[in-house]
Design a protein around this nucleic acid. Structure first.
Lengths: 186, 186
DNA sequence: TCCTGCTATGCAACTCGTTTCATATACAAG
DNA sequence: CTTGTATATGAAACGAGTTGCATAGCAGGA
């Protein structure tokens, strides 16, 4: 399980409540690791029980109070331990690839709309990444200190996301061309 | 759940036993959808109970007998139904990306070996894909009929795998350069 | 003969993750 | 003053996936 580690990283970058973490997992970190608020609250409970994180009740005005979590010593140690362990290169799950191979036994042309939908979704995500890169790293407002390890590492992860989306979009173009070719040659 | 659909596709491409499916999920299909033999046997049982697939006891010599499964009418209909349903663009889980961001709170240089390991794994997989492409699609032994939808679709999925590995390798080069730069600038 | 290894199938227990439902505060729009 | 939306937390049930264990046929080698 790496959700706890993803949460530790996020809390180290900035302490926050379960709710705030859930929002971060919809953006930023969430592009590389997904989680629902349910999972997050449950894991936060466990980590608190294990002494990995500290809680602080924060009264708020204009909205319900929250519990702000921050990483404690044992949590930092656990993260460090995990960082030094080797992990297996990820096992992928591409529904769409299964669908494409399955289309050989159905109507390939029926997939065109679906593939176009994915194409749009990935284009949107790419645009979102590029906007974030301009805002946080390469734009005029970006911090001018290039020596900050955290900045550099967040940027290289973001560049990975950008490369992934570009590759995927190019591949979906290839898929669409193939589907159209199959339809033309029926 | 798409495991049942991945199994249906694989059985349509070629009927086989649970054991054979498990092996296919270590190669071929497995590059786009992973599954252990446990899961496969369990799902096969359920699908058989639901009448999606037929079983045939196949006596073998020199090895234990096996049960060969093939897709039945209802299974084909279920697959077709799934193919026409829209699916959400996949949610990714990149342990390595989490590790890289986490390295900001530890020693970034300690990640170099890990990243190099992943680099090798992806290079191996790329070489494997390219060999498969040469064997099955672009080599002199490849079937000369380019009109076969199944062939075309398997090839475009494989091209996706190749593009993914190339992109990942290039990104890991970027990551390594970044880690070395951070170490140099201590 | 025993041990190793590959083929072949499966149960049981557990962990991880999703879905559904429930609760409460607060502000804004109608 | 009701409805909708955003913040904030959580229980309970279910489904998906992993890990460990068990069994058994058959082959080849020490």
């Amino acid at each position: 399980m790496a959700l706890e580690h993803a949460i530790l990283v996020s809390l180290l970058e900035k302490p926050g409540s379960g709710y705030e973490l859930a929002r971060r997992f919809e953006r930023s970190i969430g592009y590389f690791w997904t989680a629902t608020h349910q999972q997050i609250y449950r894991v936060l409970k466990r980590m608190e029980g294990d002494g990995w994180i500290d809680v602080r009740e924060v009264p708020q005005q204009g909205r319900p109070d929250k519990k702000e979590y921050s990483v404690a010593g044992p949590g930092r140690a656990a993260l460090s331990g995990w960082l030094h362990e080797p992990i297996e290169p990820e096992s992928v799950r591409h529904d769409l690839a299964v669908k494409i191979r399955g289309a050989a036994f159905d109507d390939p042309a029926a997939l065109i709309r679906e593939v176009e939908r994915h194409h749009r979704a990935h284009s949107d995500r790419l645009a979102h990444y590029l906007a974030g890169e301009l805002r946080d790293f390469t734009g005029p407002e970006a911090p001018a200190a290039p020596g900050d390890a955290g900045q550099e590492l967040q940027h290289v992860v973001l560049r990975g996301g950008i490369a992934y989306e570009r590759m995927t979009i190019a591949w979906l173009d290839d898929v669409l061309a193939t589907l159209h070719r199959l339809r033309a040659g029926h």
